[in-house]
Design a protein around this nucleic acid. Structure first.
Lengths: 189, 189
DNA sequence: GAACAAAACTAACACTTGTTAGTTTAATTT
DNA sequence: AAATTAAACTAACAAGTGTTAGTTTTGTTC
């Protein structure tokens, strides 16, 4: 009964180091040491340092794409879709904060093909999000602000939630969702 | 008439590279090449690679501290102070986006002393911001949400504005301020 | 034009980097 | 017990790293 493959363990360990210091500042010897083995031993399991990064980032990006697709299918209002998206981000943050750090900060250090793939996915995701916002505005459900400003202020908050989430004492996920939705949608006044 | 010292030019060039690839992925040879000189020549002007990073980050941090002090002195309501803070961040973003990237992503690569100094300044800044929010809540001017959630969602939006600001076509600063204040304070509904 | 300072250069250093090749040990299956 | 596979090891590589020392070029001041 293998619970987690050795490769998965390496990726998990590496992702923590990447989160702390960034991909470029972490050496394969750092990763090996964190696992209690020698650097060369890693290469029985992985193709190279870059592969770890690509797996982390692309798998997570696919998860976002999948979450977006599910929400788009729902028969709910644009505003409710935005609420669902906020919850999606929070759920992912809570149990994938390391990969999220890599996705945010180190995507440009993947190989050229993977960078292209990633950027395409990110743009598709943002375009879907933007369309939901536009729909909400034209239905009169959202304020008629520049959609880009709305998109950006929601997304940047959600994307960097991982920085902040475990600095404070990991408050309850449901409370976090409730307050986050309230602040992002209804503002603070 | 020396407009900018050679050292300042190096720092300016380096900051652009740091923004694109992160501090650790940029070599001193990259910086030298960007200036059309050899790596060793840099050392006539700077103490080392880390010094560039520290100057970038600590100078900018001081600018934030200074801006916060000025706002705290003003005889205006907590809500108006928050508006001023939003404008402060936008002003800094518009003409210091490279240093802002370093401050956000690479502060942990400074020397230990500078890291300490930086973290202390950041915590002081956040504490001041938090107190303004708390005051706003107790005056009934702001919604009674968890102050930490409010602080975080405003700050993370402002801190990552630099990523987004020049991706889109550098819209007018005053329009940006107006919409940003509106979205962050009054929400989107 | 001599003297001086600023800023570039060449050459090299000691160390770190990701990775490969070949081998040995440990764990599992037959 | 033999055979097989998984996973570690040692040793080394070629390239890249930040930095130093000493020298030459460039530009300015007397």
């Amino acid at each position: 009964m293998k619970t987690t493959s050795r490769k998965a363990e390496i990726i998990a360990e590496a992702s923590q180091l990447f989160k702390e210091k960034g991909y470029s500042a972490v050496t394969v010897r750092d990763i090996a040491e964190a696992m209690g083995i020698k650097a060369a031993s890693l290469y029985n399991h992985i193709e190279g340092k870059q592969e770890i990064l690509s797996i982390l980032i692309l798998d997570l990006a696919k998860e976002f794409i999948k979450g977006m697709e599910d929400i788009l299918k729902m028969k709910i209002s644009p505003l409710q879709k935005i609420e669902k998206l906020i919850e999606l981000h929070i759920d992912i943050t809570v149990n994938q904060s390391e990969a999220l750090a890599a996705l945010n900060n180190d995507w440009m250090h993947m190989g050229a093909d993977d960078v292209h793939h990633f950027v395409a996915m990110r743009e598709a995701y943002e375009e879907n999000f933007r369309n939901i916002i536009k729909e909400g505005i034209s239905l009169g459900q959202l304020q008629p602000r520049h959609p880009e400003v709305i998109l950006f202020s929601i997304l940047s908050t959600l994307r960097t939630l991982y920085v902040w989430y475990q600095k404070r004492g990991k408050l309850d996920v449901n409370i976090l969702k409730r307050d986050m939705v309230a602040v992002l949608i209804r503002g603070i006044v």
